[in-house]
Design a protein around this nucleic acid. Structure first.
Lengths: 195, 195, 195, 195
DNA sequence: ACGTACGGGACGGCCCGTTTGT
DNA sequence: ACAAACGGGCCGTCCCGTACGT
């Protein structure tokens, strides 16, 4: 391993900034987390943070970017499938997968009003939420479908948040979220004995 | 009713402060809402706010108080029942009822890290959450129960938050949340043909 | 004179803030003057400044307001007169009078780019300048008129600035600026033998 | 011409830095212009600026240098002449010439307090101004001379500033400034029928 | 019961200057 | 000749809390 010239490379610092930011955002909310806290937590000055992200908003967007991309791809894939149940099944599985792999982050994205406002200002996030909701809601007709879908999406996101479900590993969490989600939505478990 | 001397009585001002605070907290998060915003929204000065609540924390606690009381009573009632299903059924119904009647508020209480921290500092809130969770989790054994219960509680709270489910009246929302919750938890609908 | 309850009244503080701000702006330019300097100079904190003016821009606008009003009135009065020379004479005299009575201030208003930008953003200042210029420029035809008028207006404003002309009293300054201005513009001294 | 290895030579970069600095200084005042703005405007990093000028002050001095030299030479030449009128005539003509050829720059030098302070700290600029003023003021006795001279010098400098007199070419501007200046100072047009 | 005036302090943003590496 | 990274510090804004007056 060729030693990086400095103690840690520049790219590394940028990534570490994003990591501690996610942790702090999820622990203290976006509005409740100052740049000073982030800098202190990492042992650098605010100026170093500024070097990588000129505004707190920019930092947040950089953090969100990968999840946003995955989410969009998932929605488009699911919408391309035939069959209401197949679409819901795919959407649900992918949503859980992304959420579990980014535990702390999703809770922030999904429920922090400050974050949601900012997302709305920069992206067509409303449309994306509508489409996610519709994919799950179509399993049941009328309000029942929409309300079930809302409960499931919000529940998955919020339940994996900080301090909750910490004592389950990813695989366990995924399986049981999937089962509970299927039941709430009225999805039969897919028959994959042949698979 | 003694005639209020001014346009609105003092008690009224206090209540209106709490109402706008709830709305703002749910729209901008607790940490993102200043006393100035609350005062401006109501058309008074910060000093007027200070007259009723000496700190922002005090204001939050006053807001939360009724919900906390109802929640505690509900848990105790449910725990007094016999039968796992009956207990879960009662807890779920009461939780949904309280949540729907205090839509915006619960979303803040349940997911805002700043609020949760403060609650933890003042009350034995962890214990209360554990008991709620257990009441619902006992329907299924092992992780399946806990994870389902977590999804349902978090989902109900978060799904009724601001900008979501706004186009359903309380009764509709309650009924479908109940059904979806029952399914997720594995609760059979109670046979009340006689009711 | 009933003594004001405090050491100095609130209105007084507001006025004193504006006074020290004018002095500092003219000594260090608008962009080069921090709120800290202003607060220190007056022996209060930045928060006290904030109480009276929520932004630095707001402070500047309050300072400028009286001059802006006088200037506008002057232009309208002058435009209402008949005769090119009479109009120019009136405009010139009033401009000098206002400038001399607000020595430091005008220099800032007229030449500080930061100030001019801000004025342009809030008022129809370009129009006002055009009209002032035209009133003086009409005495001579073509570029000669415009350039003379520009030199005179800018010269009066800048010459009365800080550190210049400090050793002349208002009356002396006014008279000689008037004479030099008339000559530059090609205005004959008005025949007021009876005056 | 030895081919410059890169797109533009080092000397070129240095000169372009000074050019954009002048433009920005005149548009936003000296104190209101950061090194970052200058670097951005030219599409380089701050480090590149730092490479050429270690401080903002150093940059300003380099910009000013040629004008300062010309101005000094002019004053000395004018003072060497015999006859009050001849001296004033020469000073005025040269001042206008230098100003018009460096339109934006002179306005900054002459009226920006931050610039003036810095100049005073490094050069004997007060002495230079006094001598310029005296050369023009001597045409008329007493306060009339000084005030006229002040108006003319300040007026020429400020009138050629940014956004003013932009639609006149150098030659036109020069001629009319000269005529207006002569009139203000009480200088007869020199009899050069033979020239 | 509420407004006015203000202190003390922290916020996000951005500055200038410098080191280190190409 | 230039870029990347960062320290230390100041900026304007705005915060919460309080003393005082009505």
């Amino acid at each position: 391993m060729a030693a990086p010239t400095r103690e840690h490379s520049a790219q590394d610092t940028r990534q570490r900034l994003m990591d501690v930011a996610v942790r702090l955002f999820s622990q203290r909310s976006f509005a409740g987390t100052s740049l000073q806290m982030i800098a202190d937590e990492l042992g650098v000055t605010k100026a170093a943070v500024y070097h990588h992200f000129h505004t707190r908003e920019e930092l947040l967007i950089a953090i969100i970017e990968p999840v946003r991309t995955q989410m969009r791809a998932t929605v488009e894939e699911a919408e391309a499938l035939r069959g209401t149940h197949a679409r819901a099944e795919r959407m649900l599985a992918a949503f859980i997968d992304i959420t579990v792999r980014n535990r702390a982050l999703i809770a922030v994205l999904a429920v922090d009003p400050g974050v949601i406002d900012m997302l709305r200002a920069h992206f067509e996030i409303n449309d994306m939420i509508e489409r996610q909701l519709k994919l799950l809601a179509d399993v049941q007709p009328g309000p029942a479908g929409v309300i079930s879908a809302g409960l499931v999406l919000a529940g998955i996101a919020a339940a994996t948040g900080p301090n909750r479900m910490v004592d389950y590993d990813d695989e366990t969490l995924r399986r049981h979220l999937m089962e509970a989600g299927r039941r709430a939505l009225g999805l039969r478990a897919p028959r994959r004995p042949a698979a």
